[in-house]
Structure formats: structure tokens, C-alpha cells
């Protein structure tokens, strides 16, 4: 199966490979895996607590080219976005950008799950600061 040029580009020059300090309270870590193909993906993001903007993102993926490209692209996309904006990224956006064939769609799902897992981890680390406004019936 031929990989698209964009997949090859990310595969050959992956962006943001590496890791962030897991114990940093502003860093969220997402570790996900696809047992069918043996892939495992770690995605980390660092949030500026004042602005809620993701200032840095790193990933490390052991898996096929599409899994590496999907996570590489995911880190590129979430940088500079707010946490809430990052949560809007859908696996289908990744599929379209990388022209992934149907058999590789699960790689993009993995990347979406990794973003969500990293953000969930970040949120878990935040002290329950201001009480959330409770929606009141008018």
C-alpha cells in the first residue's frame, strides 16, 4: 500500500518527537494503544495555566507510518490552541489531511484518543480551583 506524500513527510521528518516532564502539573500525558496492530502512542502537552493555551506538545509512537504521521500531525495542530479547541479535533480531520486509506483510519482514531487522554490527564492534575458555575433553571 502506498503512503500519501503527507504521511511520508511526517514519517521521515516527524515533528515534536520527544517527551515532556510527566510530573509537571501543567503537563498532560496520554498513552493509548491499538492492540490489533501492536501500536502504542504517547502524546504529551504543556498548557499555560494563565491562558489555557497549549504551548508545547511532544509525542512518541511505536507503530506504522500512518500512526506516526497521525500523532505527529496531532502535536502540530494542538500547539497554540486552547485545551477546548484541541478537544474539537476529530480523527476525520486527520484522515482528510493525511489522505489515510480506510484500513488506516484506526491510526487517526488513536491520535484523537491520545489528545483526549492527554487533556484528561492535564485536567485531573489541576486543583479544583474556582467552583464551576452551576447551570440554574430560569
Amino acid at each position: 500500500m502506498a503512503y500519501s506524500d503527507k504521511v511520508l513527510d511526517h514519517y521521515n521528518n516527524p515533528r515534536n518527537v520527544g517527551s515532556l516532564d510527566k510530573s509537571d502539573p501543567n503537563v498532560g500525558t496520554g498513552m493509548v494503544g491499538a492492540p490489533e496492530c501492536g501500536d502504542v502512542m504517547k502524546l504529551q502537552l504543556k498548557v499555560n495555566p494563565a491562558t489555557g493555551i497549549i504551548e508545547d506538545a511532544k509525542f512518541k509512537t511505536f507503530g506504522c507510518g500512518s500512526a506516526i504521521a497521525s500523532s505527529s500531525l496531532a502535536t502540530e495542530w494542538i500547539k497554540g490552541r486552547t485545551v477546548d479547541e484541541a478537544l474539537q479535533i476529530k480523527n476525520t480531520d486527520i484522515v482528510n489531511e493525511l489522505s489515510l486509506p480506510p484500513v488506516k483510519i484506526h491510526c487517526s482514531v488513536l491520535a484523537e484518543d491520545a489528545i483526549k487522554a492527554a487533556i484528561a490527564d492535564y485536567k485531573k492534575k489541576q486543583p479544583a480551583a474556582e467552583p464551576q458555575p452551576v447551570a440554574q433553571e430560569a
Partner: peptide, 13 residues
């Protein structure tokens, strides 16, 4: 991914 226990993913990683 969330069907897989995190310890296993850590170990495999």
C-alpha cells in the same frame, strides 16, 4: 485505546 489497561501500555512503551 481505552480498552487496554494503562499498565500494559506503559510496559509495552
Amino acid at each position: 485505546g481505552n480498552d487496554v489497561p494503562p499498565e500494559l501500555l506503559e510496559e509495552v512503551f
